[in-house]
Each structure stands twice: as C-alpha cells, then as structure tokens.
Computed example of a mutant assay.
Amino acid sequence: MTVLNPAFEEYAEFFVGTAGDFLCSYPPPYFTVGGNKLVRSKYYNFIKYLSKQKLLKTQEITRKKPFSWLTYQDIAQIKNGSIVCFQGWLFRDGWFVEDLPYLHKYADQIRAYFAPLERYRINVDRLILNLKDNSDMLVGIHIRQGDYAQHQKGRYFYTTQQYLEVMNSVVRLFEGKKIKFLICSNIPQNPSLFDNFNCGFGSGHLIEDMYAFAECDYVVGPPSSYTMWASFYGDQPLYMIRDVNKTINLKDFVHFYEWQGIFHERDDWSESFWEWTHAR
C-alpha cells in the first residue's frame, strides 16, 4: 500500500521525506518530482475537487469518535490496486494510544522520514550547543498561548507568570543542578520576565523550535501534539501541564512509549479532549 498525503502541503517543504516529493508519498518512491508551495497547493485542491465530484472513491473520517486504523471497519472493503481518498483531519486522534506499539516498532523509520532539512538542523544544532554549554541539563519550556486562549475554552491556557512558577518547580525538583531553560512560544515573550532563570530562547521558527525541544533533556508544556512529537522524535521525557499549580515530581515526566490516554467525549466536539496519563 502506498499513501499519498496531499493535505501535508503546508509542511512538506521542511522534511527530508517530503521536500523533494510533491506527492508526499510513503513509502518514498524511486523517482520523485519536486514541488513548491504553489504546486502542492494546486495538487491538494485538485484532489479535493476530484473527491467532491465523486470522481475518487472517498472515505469520510467523521468526528463521531477518535480514529484508529486498528478499529477502522471499512478497511476490508479497500481492494488491492484501488485508489481511495480519505477525508477528515482526525487521523491523529488516538494514534498515541491505540497505535503506540507500531509507533515504537517503526520509530527509526518515522524519524528518518520526518527529519528536518539540513538548513534547519544546522540552526537547531547551533542553538543547542550554545545552550548546553556550562550547564548540567537543558529543560524545554513550551509557552503555548495565542490559540490556546480559545482552544477548549482555555482549558490549557496559562499566563506567563504561571509558566514562571512551573519553571521554579523544575528548579526545586533538580536542586543542585545547573539548569538551563529553552523557552519557545507561539507569541512573543518579554525576555526580562525570565531574568531570574538561566535560559535562552528559540528562533521562533515552527520546525526549529520543535526539533530544539527534541534535543532537550526534559520537555515541559501544556498538552499538545507539538511537544509530544518533540518528545517522540528525541526520545526525551515530557511533562504535560494539566494542573498548573501542581508541584512537579520526577515520575511525572514520561517517555512516548509510556503514554496512555483517556478520551473524554462531549456533545460539542470542540470540548472533547484527551487526558494523557502514563503506564506506570
């Protein structure tokens, strides 16, 4: 089976496995045709048109429940050699739970496919080298505000002051260690607010910040697939802030292969959410 992912057009230019293949296919083809944002966008819209006109067989992934290939009932109807279009963005919901054994088994192949291009890796390596100089450990802090003010009615929106308190909790947890923090945020932060900490700031680039988190010894942030991916890619322990007032314990940091999740469904899908736990 070959998977083509035209919907990845917004991010394809950043990764080794997709930058040179405008089809965004997996497994990677023997011969590829490069593309750019314009070409990818037209390709994506063309596929959407064919699907809408019912010129492609289309399977709709609805929001009734989290999607998982392990429980997908219609896969038996897909014939060898056929072309089927899957529509809906919920493919990732549940993938860290039901599909976790496969994520673990094929981790190296997944990481290789989604390795950032060299120009981003160089920037990440330079940043991490500077940050790790003269420190015992590097802790990434993901300050996600902006969209999180409205997301799930602000369930995981925390003020900068609250993040500072979380950082204080980290310092107390690793008392006696020279800790340096990497601060990355989706909105500009006032650097002077962090003067009491030994820290540096990410470049602000979507990919560079995420892959810089992957190089940290520990990662801290609100529940988000952004830091979950960084934790997976770098195989580094992650602490998801669900209670901003909680005193952090070392056992609260978990590796990706320990994740478990409980899905809380609400009548209003936008209020449905995952509560991430771990296997211990």
Rank of each mutant, 00 (worst) to 15 (best):
S135R: 10
P27M: 04
V219N: 08
N123K: 15
R92T: 07
F86V: 02
L56D: 02
A7T: 01
M137D: 01
F181Q: 04
F15M: 09
T277V: 15
S82Q: 12
P29N: 03
F197Y: 14
K79A: 07
K132P: 04
K251T: 04
Q77Y: 14
T160C: 08
A107G: 00
G34P: 10
S270N: 13
L38T: 09
F8Q: 01
K153R: 13
Y211H: 13
R172M: 11
R242C: 01
F114V: 03
R92K: 08
D21G: 12
N186L: 06
V39N: 04
G261W: 11
T2F: 08
D21S: 08
F96K: 02
L23S: 10
N80L: 09
N80Y: 09
L206E: 07
F273H: 15
N130Y: 08
Q162W: 08
T62R: 11
N168S: 06
N123W: 01
L193R: 12
F201M: 04
V171H: 05
K54H: 14
W259V: 04
S82A: 12
G20N: 15
W269L: 09
F67D: 05
A12V: 00
D93S: 11
Y233M: 12
Y44M: 08
N130C: 11
S25Y: 01
F181C: 06
V3I: 15
T32H: 10
I83Q: 07
F22E: 05
A279D: 15
I262P: 00
I141S: 05
L129F: 12
Y72R: 10
L100C: 12
V254I: 13
N36F: 05
R144P: 05
K64C: 06
L182Q: 09
V219E: 01
L117F: 01
Q152Y: 02
D93Y: 06
T18H: 04
P223I: 09
T32V: 15
G17A: 06
N5I: 08
S68Y: 01
S169T: 09
E215F: 03
K52L: 09
G146W: 05
D108H: 10
E10A: 03
E60Y: 09
L38S: 13
A212T: 13
Y226K: 05
T277A: 10
H278Y: 14
Q59H: 07
G234K: 10
Y120H: 15
W89E: 03
Y11C: 01
G88Y: 02
G202V: 10
E13D: 13
F31Y: 11
Q59T: 08
T277N: 13
H205E: 09
E258D: 14
M1N: 14
Y239S: 05
P116A: 05
N168L: 02
L138Q: 02
Y233P: 02
L38D: 13
F31L: 13
F232R: 03
P27E: 08
D252G: 03
H104S: 12
Y218S: 02
F14K: 01
L129Y: 08
